[in-house]
Design a protein around this nucleic acid. Structure first.
Length: 500
RNA sequence: GGCCUCGUCGUCUAACGGUUAGGACACGGCGUUCUCAACGCUGUAAUCGGAGUUCGAUUCUCCGCGAGGUCACCA
């Protein structure tokens, strides 16, 4: 029963960055395996010791968890095919490499880096395809073995048979691609430092870990024939190899650069900015995969249920911030206030220290406040937007955004000052107990002022809004004022007047 | 440059060879309205080009064009 189970894996190299596209690949891997009750595995491809970045392993785990995803086997939790770090599996690769040499599928090569660099340089100058010149391909095997045993530096190269063809049928496009050996290279399998290259390690490990489906980026298409050939040499069954799309940067039209200095598409950007991860996840689900019925809102479990290779797209999608925000809003408004507040607290403790004082004031037991919070929630798409709105309500501001307030930004100080006085007068007539205020009384007062000064009603409302909340955008004013109470409102308007 | 992949509204996408080419985001208009959202109605907007196969092509084939990927002892 274990034999037919779907097993997928993500095989990241710990170089420091976790891209939103990597999260998407994890998601697809996860969904593909879970769809049929399979397993999802993390395997660390840390064979390039020059590029290792301290802490990137933990960071990767943290990001995957942050998006609500999980794994069944991995370096941290182990599993039946441990170890899950390639650097701890070296003997397996070395053994396999030697076996390939013995069987005639690979050979020892003794080139220096300098020679190869020079070779490439000459080829580039000559305008031909850069490739290995197969210098050591036909060395006598026992002779080569002697040199190896004597301690000479060597690497192991794959011996691509001449005049051969390697075929691959892509599960998404269903098209067959044929590579000819003249376009292929005798790639290195085992480096001279004893570490395997990706090509050897990935094949060995995917077989060893019984991976049934390989999901990877299109940058691997060009090396797929090597992998296929290797599976054949070792008599292994080839897993389904599925090349998913890459997410394209709308600014450049190209795939996200490895070191985008703006950090615009790093996985933790959205976490830090206070997006609900399930909203971001829902957005990236549909960036490269679509169901036949065009449904859009999917929880993770619904996605797992619906996901299949058939829905995977061929063309690379362009990242669209606006649509992400739409999803974010859908989710932000859709969760309960209790849930939201609980998550905000967690977020503030890690990413939003500056909002500490805001969350301390939140009091859900107060019914008035609960309805206020709901109004703020409806107008937010991130924790940041939620908390900054709340901050304007809870605390007096030092800075008034008059420049953005239509209807009052072009009026003179004298004019604003006079109208503010009238506002003070009108508010002071309201009942001390704001719960007794009626919307009609309140509104009538404002409209009277508008009539007196021949302003538009909306402009007086705006003045009142800015004077109390400092911002031209807010939840409904009446409710906010009622929440604050008469004394605070008057105090804030007074303060505003002094800044005119 | 060699090899490979891809090409439906601005964007994400749907459409057994037969649809007025559908939906979503964005954008515009209208409505609601104290602002901002949200919401309802509504509008603009696409099959890269050319041949061929077919009664009929977004769909199949070929040729162009465009875009992307890849050509390391990196993954």
């Amino acid at each position: 029963m274990e034999t037919n189970i779907v097993r997928t894996r993500i095989a990241p190299s710990p170089t420091g960055f976790v891209h939103i596209g990597a999260i998407r690949t994890v998601l697809y891997d996860y969904a593909l395996s879970k769809h049929s009750g399979g397993k999802f595995i993390i395997r660390l491809e840390d064979t390039d010791r020059n590029r290792l970045v301290e802490g990137s392993e933990e960071y990767l785990y943290k990001m995957i968890k942050a998006y609500g995803l999980s794994w069944d086997e991995g370096p941290d939790i182990g599993g039946p095919y441990a170890p899950y770090k390639q650097s701890e599996r070296l003997p397996m690769y070395q053994h396999a490499a030697n076996e390939l040499v013995e069987k005639g599928f690979a050979y020892y090569a003794f080139d220096t880096i300098e020679r190869l660099d020079k070779l490439r340089e000459e080829q580039e100058k000559a305008g031909v395809r850069t490739h290995y010149d197969n210098r050591d391909r036909d060395l006598d095997t026992s002779e080569a073995k002697k040199r190896v045993d004597s301690g000479e530096k060597y690497c192991v190269r794959l011996k691509i048979p001449s005049s051969s063809k390697i075929e691959f049928i892509d599960p998404i496009s269903k098209k067959k691609t044929v590579w000819e050996s003249k376009d292929l290279d005798d790639i290195i399998l085992l480096k001279s430092d004893g570490y395997p290259t990706y090509h050897l390690a990935v094949v060995i490990d995917d077989v060893a870990m019984k991976i049934t489906h390989v999901l990877r980026g299109p940058e691997w298409i060009a090396t797929t024939p090597y992998h296929i050939y290797l599976y054949g040499c070792m008599g292994y069954k080839i897993p389904e190899i599925i090349h998913v799309t890459v997410i394209v940067d709308p600014r450049t039209g190209k795939k996200f650069s490895k070191r985008d200095q703006t950090g615009l598409f790093l996985a933790d950007k959205y976490i830090k900015e206070g997006y609900l991860p399930e909203g971001v996840l829902n957005y990236i689900m549909l960036l490269g995969w679509a169901p036949k019925d065009n449904s859009e809102i999917y929880s993770l479990s619904e996605f797992v249920e619906a996901f299949g290779v058939d829905g995977l797209q061929k063309a690379n999608p362009i990242f669209n911030q606006k649509k992400l925000e739409w999803f974010a809003g859908q989710y932000f408004r859709g969760i309960s206030l209790e849930n939201l507040l609980g998550r905000i607290k967690l977020w503030v403790s890690e990413y939003g220290k500056e909002y500490q004082e805001v969350i301390q004031k939140i009091d859900l037991s107060d019914a008035k406040e609960e309805s206020l919070l709901k109004m703020v929630q409806e107008r937010s798409i991130t924790f940041v937007s939620f908390l900054s709105q709340l901050k304007n309500i809870y605390f007096e501001s030092e800075k008034y955004e008059i420049e953005n307030a239509k209807g009052i930004k072009d009026r003179s100080k004298e004019e604003l000052s006079k109208a503010t006085d009238s506002l003070l007068e009108a508010i002071s007539k309201l009942n001390e107990d704001s719960s007794l205020w009626t919307h009609e009384d309140w509104e009538l007062g404002v409209r009277d002022i508008a009539k007196t000064y021949t302003w538009k009603d909306a402009d007086v409302f705006m003045l009142l809004r800015v004077s109390i909340l400092a911002t031209p955008f807010s939840p409904p004013l009446f409710e906010v004022m009622q929440y604050l109470g008469k004394a605070k409102c008057l105090k804030r308007i007074e303060k505003f007047k002094t800044t005119l």
